[in-house]
Design a protein around this nucleic acid. Structure first.
Lengths: 353, 353
DNA sequence: CACAGGTCCTAAAACGTTTACGCAAGCGCC
DNA sequence: GGCGCTTGCGTAAACGTTTTAGGACCTGTG
C-alpha cells in the first residue's frame, strides 16, 4: 500500500469518489456524519490527495514561480534573495501553494517565464531585482501571467503590480539626519545604478542636499557592487581626499562593513570621527547587532517584503482582472552607534588648536 | 488561442495525438519526414506540452524538493542556502526538472517531507544543514523518498546518500599550515557544534595539534553562530588574554571578517602580527577578494556542491535501488595575505628587546 | 501465393482528481 | 396526492498527456 488514492479510499468506505472528494474539500452537499467518517478514514490511512491529479483536474498549478538569474560568473547574486524567498515561502505554505524556483542564465530569463507559463507549471510569478526600464514588465504583461515585481522600474509607463521600499525617502531622511548633525561632506556609497533602488536612493540623497541649497560632490558619490571590499575601497579612497567626507551613506550591511573598516584603518572612530548610515535589509545572517543596533540604519525587512509580494500574487491569481496593486513600504530610521554630531577638525586631520 | 494542446495540434496536422507525442519525444517508430512536420508545427504554434498532464500521465513529478526551515525568529538562516540552491537549480534546468522549495517552521520539517512525498509533488529531495544524529535520515529512509544530504551526520550508522566537504581535513591542513609558520597559540572560532561540519572541523584542528604533541587550549576555542559580530567578540576576548593567540581559524567569511576587525582594532596588522585562515564557501556575494584572495582560506564552492548533490538525486531517481552514494569534496588551501610566520613578541605585546 | 517481419500510424485506456448533471428519497404545503 | 424544494449521494465526463494494444500496409522470402 504505497499510496492510498481516492478511489480506493472510497471503496473502503462504500462511497463514491465524488462524495469522498466533496467531504474532504468541505463542500456542503454531504451529510456531516458521513463527512466525519470520511475524514476519519482519510486520517487513518493517511490519505493525501495526489497533487499532480489535482493540478490537472482543476487546471491550476497551485504554484508560484521565482526565477533566479544572474549566473554568469562575474555577476553577483542577490544576497537578499534567500530572505525574500523565505518570507514568500511562508505565505505559500499557509495557503497550500508551492514555490517553484527556476535557475537560469542571465539571457534566458525571459524564456524561463514563457516556459513556466506555457507549460502551465505556475499560476503566477514574482520578479526579482527590478532594473530601470525593466523589459520583463512588458514580457509578463504580454504573456498574461499574474506577476508581482519586487521593486519599481523607473522609466516604465505601463502599470504593473509591485512591492517596494520607499528608497528615495529612506535616503532622504538619512541624509537629513546627517545634515542635522552638522555634516556637510556626506558620501554616498551606492549600489550599481542600473538597479532601480540605487537610482532612487541617489535621488533621495541629492534631493535632501538640494533642499538645503547644497549640491552633491561627484567625488563623494560611488556606484558599485554592494560588497565589503567595494565599500572598503570606496571609503578608503574618499577618506584620503584632501577634503574627506565626515559621514557616509552605504547601500547595504556589507558595503557598510567595508566603509567601517576603511574608517577604522585610519585610526578614526566610527560614530565619533566619522558617521555611517546604511540600508539594512534585516537579513537573518547579517544582523545589525543583536539587541541594540550597531549601525544607524534605514531598515526594512526584505523578508516582510517577500510575504507581502507573495500575498499579492495570490490575490492576483484569485482575481486576475483587478487593477494593478502596489505596496510601498517605509523604511524605519533606527539609531545606532555609528552616527554622531560633526566634530570640527574633521576626519583624519588632527586639528592643531 | 491561449494554450495550444496536443489534441489540437494533432488535428491541425491530420495526425493522431499519439503520433505527435511520439514525434516530439523522439520515439523511433515515427517517420522522419512526419517528425519534421510535427516539430515544425509545434514550433510554429509554440506548443509546449502541459506539465501538469505530463506529471499525471507519467506518474513522475519531474521535480526535486528542498525544504528551508529554521524560521523561528532567533535562529539564523543558512547563508549558504542561496548559493547551494543556485548550483542545484542549474542541474535541474539542464535536465528538465523543476525545483520545489518548501519554507516551513523548524518543528514541521519532518511533516513537510512526508507531505511532499505523499502528495507526489516531488520525486526526491535534498536535505540541508545536516546535524549530528540527524533524525531526518531515518525519516526519509522510512518514507522511501530518494534523498541526498548536504553534509554527513556524525553518530548515524545507517547508510545514506551525501555530498560533503572534507571539513576535518580542511581544518587539519589549515592548522598544520599555521603550525609550520611557527604559530603555537592558534584559536578556533567555530560554528555551532550541533552542526556536523563544525564538529569535524574541530576534530581536524585538535588532531593536527595532537600530531605535534600539543593539546588545544579550551580558552582558544569558541563555538557560536557564524556572524561578523560573533567572530569579532570571540577574537576580541581572546586577544585580550594574557597569552593571546597569534593565529585564528575562522569558520566562515563573515566570522573571519569579525576576527579581522578585532585584530585591526588593536592596532595589529593581519598577516604580520596575527594570522587568520577561514573557511571560504565561495559565496557569490561574499567573495574573498577579486583576482587575488585576501584571506588565506580553505575553499570549497558550495555552489559546486549543489550541482553535485542535484546530479546525485537525479541519478537516484533514475535508479532508486542502487547502493548509497557519497561524494567527499576536498577543500583547497589558498594562500592569501592574512597569514605569515610567527613574529616573536606575539600579538599586541611589544617586545622590549 | 502465403507469410513473416518491418514500418508507420491509430484507438483507447490509463493517470487521480474535480465537477456538471442527475436522481431518489423525504418533507412540507396547498 | 401531486408539486416543488432540499438533502445526500452517485455517474460519468472532463483535464492533457503517455502508453498499451493493435492494425493496415508494404516488402521480401520461401
Amino acid at each position: 500500500m504505497p499510496t492510498m488514492n481516492l478511489k480506493e479510499l472510497a471503496s473502503k468506505l462504500g462511497l463514491s469518489p465524488t462524495t469522498v472528494s466533496r467531504a474532504l474539500n468541505g463542500y456542503p452537499e454531504v451529510n456531516e456524519t458521513t463527512r466525519d467518517r470520511v475524514m476519519a478514514a482519510a486520517k487513518r490511512h493517511n490519505y493525501r490527495p495526489n497533487a499532480r491529479a489535482i493540478r490537472l483536474a482543476t487546471g491550476r498549478a497551485m504554484a508560484v514561480g521565482h526565477v533566479m538569474s544572474g549566473l554568469t560568473r562575474n555577476e553577483i547574486m542577490n544576497p537578499i534573495f534567500a530572505d525574500f524567498i523565505a518570507g514568500a515561502g511562508e505565505v505559500y505554505s499557509q495557503n497550500g501553494y508551492d514555490m517553484m524556483l527556476s535557475v537560469v542564465s542571465n539571457d534566458s530569463e525571459e524564456a524561463a517565464y514563457r516556459d513556466l507559463a506555457s507549460r502551465g507549471a505556475v499560476d503566477g510569478v514574482i520578479v526579482h531585482s527590478v532594473k530601470r526600464h525593466d523589459p520583463r514588465i512588458k514580457v509578463l504583461s504580454d504573456i498574461g501571467l499574474p506577476a508581482v515585481f519586487h521593486g519599481r522600474a523607473t522609466g516604465t509607463e505601463a502599470a504593473y503590480n509591485w512591492v517596494d521600499v520607499n528608497n528615495r525617502r529612506a535616503f532622504l531622511r538619512a541624509t537629513e539626519f546627517l545634515l542635522d548633525l552638522g555634516h556637510r561632506r556626506i558620501a554616498l556609497v551606492n549600489g550599481l545604478e542600473y538597479m532601480d533602488f540605487a537610482i532612487r536612493r541617489r535621488t533621495g540623497y541629492t534631493d535632501a542636499l538640494a533642499a538645503r541649497g547644497m549640491t552633491a560632490d561627484p567625488a563623494l558619490m560611488v556606484s558599485d557592487e554592494m560588497t565589503e571590499l567595494s565599500g572598503y575601497r570606496a571609503a578608503a579612497q574618499m577618506l584620503d581626499l584632501p577634503d574627506p567626507p565626515t559621514a557616509f551613506l552605504a547601500a547595504s550591511m556589507l558595503s557598510g562593513m567595508g566603509v567601517r573598516r576603511a574608517i577604522e584603518a585610519r585610526g578614526l572612530q566610527i560614530g565619533r570621527d566619522v558617521s555611517v548610515i546604511l540600508f539594512d535589509d534585516d537579513l537573518s545572517y547579517l544582523r545589525n547587532g543583536e539587541d541594540v543596533p550597531i549601525f544607524t540604519a534605514t531598515r526594512s525587512s526584505v523578508r516582510h517584503a517577500g510575504r507581502l509580494a507573495a500575498q499579492m500574487v495570490l490575490d492576483l491569481i484569485a482575481a486576475p482582472d483587478t487593477a494593478p496593486r502596489t505596496h510601498l513600504l517605509e523604511a524605519e530610521l533606527i539609531i545606532g552607534q555609528s552616527t554622531g554630531p560633526l566634530v570640527h577638525g574633521g576626519a583624519g586631520h588632527a586639528d592643531p588648536l
